[in-house]
Nucleic acid binder design. Sequence first.
DNA 1: CCGGGCCTGCGG
DNA 2: CCGCAGGCCCGG
Length: 275
Amino acid sequence: MPELPEVETLRRSLARRVVGARVIGVWTSGLPLRLQRPVPARALRRASLDRRIVAIRRVAKYLLVDTDAGDVIVIHLGMTGRVLAAAAATPRPPHTHVVWTLDDGRELRFVDPRRFGWITAARPGKEAELPELRVLGAEPLSLTVERLAALLARTRRAMKAFLMDQGNIAGLGNIYVSEALFLAGIHPAARADRLSAGAVARLRDAIVQVLRGAIANRGTTLRDYVDGAGRRGRNQFRLHVYGREELPCPRCGTPIRRVVDSGRSTFFCPACQKR
DNA sequence: CCGGGCCTGCGG
DNA sequence: CCGCAGGCCCGG
């Protein structure tokens, strides 16, 4: 579910709520998450028990929780993952898989019905060496036109696939790829290495604009996404093409089209977006 | 590159 | 009942 803007919104909401709190208990459900991998309960406990939370960071779609001993908890939300800071007295939602009890009467809860999420602990300063993080490409919010052009030049893939690949640019997902390609006027099937210089520049601007706008709107809540306080985003009311099959293109009125490749929907305007 | 799989839930 | 879902991995 969550792409970069949702994880960033979550990061900000959690930072205000749990930074400074001390972890006085760690509980895990015992159910495995992504790829049947068990939650590393011992490592999580060693990394966070009796430690203070000192910062919350984001890398692409990953949420990183820093502790005062330097250990880092690394969380990926998959499709339906949530991280909620809630009063310990409130009932834990169904599908709660990890709970950090805090010294201020609250709990930090990782909840994930589909269990496509992932969580681990890393030793101080070693989180960037995790295989999952090491393969990530450029941070899109600081992407330069030159860097984007270099990435595009080295592949012959379709633009949709290029932008979905976290090894190129890390943080876009199904929603924001459709949105960025629309804003840039680029067809999702266009070949990456055949964009004009003007199209590359438009794409960079479109990526930044789409992500910044979504963050300003506190993320897109289609169904599951909420921030650390359980609040929904409102960027779903600002989408141009995603989820808008058959509805008129906001620019030219042509009906938006939906195509499916590799099992994922892509939305675009057949008139505005050229190969 | 594609299809399938991992899971659960929801809406038509 | 079926199709679909914001992510990612794997095998062919």
